[in-house]
């Protein structure tokens, strides 16, 4: 028995097509206000490349391969960790005015008050 995944030409194309479509649709729904965190978030997601780097490094046999593998893991890890750190920081900054009643304005807040009273 073997759990190896074999992806020949067309299966790969199916995966690529569906993934690209899913990405387009998911990202298309993100409002413009979140475009920077979205970009750094998707930046983080391609940090998964570190997994490929680890695979390459573990299979390295010559000093050259080890050096390139090391470089790949180094950059991939930086991509993933850095992308996560900045995205998480940015997203934590987005707050509504409901969170701080001092800036009370707009219908959303008024409704909250009303609910609290009743």
């Amino acid at each position: 028995m073997n759990f190896d995944i074999a992806m020949t030409g067309f299966v790969a194309l199916y995966i690529f097509t569906l993934a690209a479509f899913a990405g387009w649709v998911i990202i298309g729904n993100v409002p413009a206000i979140l475009h920077t965190p979205l970009m750094s978030g998707s930046n983080f997601v391609h940090g998964i490349v570190v997994v490929g780097g680890l695979y390459g490094l573990f299979n390295a046999t010559t000093p050259l391969e080890q050096a390139i593998g090391f470089f790949a893991v180094l950059l991939g890890a930086g991509n993933a960790a850095g992308g996560y750190a900045v995205t998480d920081r940015m997203l934590a900054m987005f707050k509504t005015s409901d969170a701080k009643p001092k800036a009370a304005h707009g219908h959303g807040h008024a409704r909250v008050h009303h609910l609290k009273k009743s």
């Binding site: 993934a19 479509f21 997601v45």
Partner: peptide, 15 residues
């Protein structure tokens, strides 16, 4: 031959 990389990469590519 790693589908996770393929999917993640393509999603980001489309984004």
């Amino acid at each position: 031959q790693n589908p996770a990389l393929m999917i993640a990469g393509m999603v980001v590519g489309a984004a």
